[in-house]
Measured scan of single mutants.
Amino acid sequence: NQASVVANQLIPINTALTLVMMRAEVVTPMGIPAVDIPRLVSMQVNRAVPLGTTLMPDMVKGYA
């Protein structure tokens, strides 16, 4: 099973992602693959992402 990107903290809307905000976890359903974490750094979320939420492609501006 491939790990997905999960929020390590509450990420407010329009926040630029940093490594500290994300962790890799095997979850269902799968979200953004953990291998993409370096690519996500400095991209912004388009909604508030609660702690423990799996990041989906439509939550990150410019990802999809």
Rank of each mutant, 00 (worst) to 15 (best):
M30P: 11
G62A: 13
P33S: 15
V35I: 08
T15Q: 10
S42R: 14
M21H: 09
I11R: 00
N8M: 07
E25A: 07
T18V: 12
K61Y: 08
V5S: 04
A24N: 14
M56S: 13
N14D: 10
P33V: 05
L17P: 02
I32W: 02
R23D: 09
G31E: 02
T54S: 08
A64L: 15
L55F: 08
N14W: 07
V6A: 07
P57W: 08
P12H: 12
P29Q: 13
T18Q: 09
G31S: 02
A24S: 14
P33C: 14
M21P: 01
V45T: 13
T18K: 06
P33Q: 09
N1L: 14
M56D: 08
P12I: 05
R39K: 13
S42H: 11
N8Y: 05
L19D: 12
T54E: 02
R23E: 06
Y63E: 05
V27S: 11
M22N: 00
V41E: 10
P29A: 14
A7H: 01
M43E: 06
M21D: 08
G52K: 09
T15K: 04
Y63W: 14
N1C: 05
E25H: 04
I37W: 02
T28G: 05
G52M: 07
L40G: 00
V49A: 05
G52H: 12
P38R: 03
D36L: 04
V5C: 10
V41K: 05
N1V: 15
V6L: 10
A24C: 06
I11M: 06
E25Y: 03
Q2F: 11
Q2S: 14
V26Q: 14
A34G: 12
A3V: 08
V49T: 11
N8P: 02
M21Q: 07
L10G: 08
R23L: 11
V5D: 01
P50Q: 07
A24E: 14
V45H: 00
L40W: 02
P33E: 11
R47Q: 14
V49I: 11
G31P: 00
S4D: 01
S42F: 12
P50E: 14
Q44M: 09
A48S: 09
V27E: 03
P12T: 10
A24H: 11
M43N: 13
V27N: 03
V27A: 10
V49N: 01
S4I: 01
P12G: 14
L40T: 01
N46R: 08
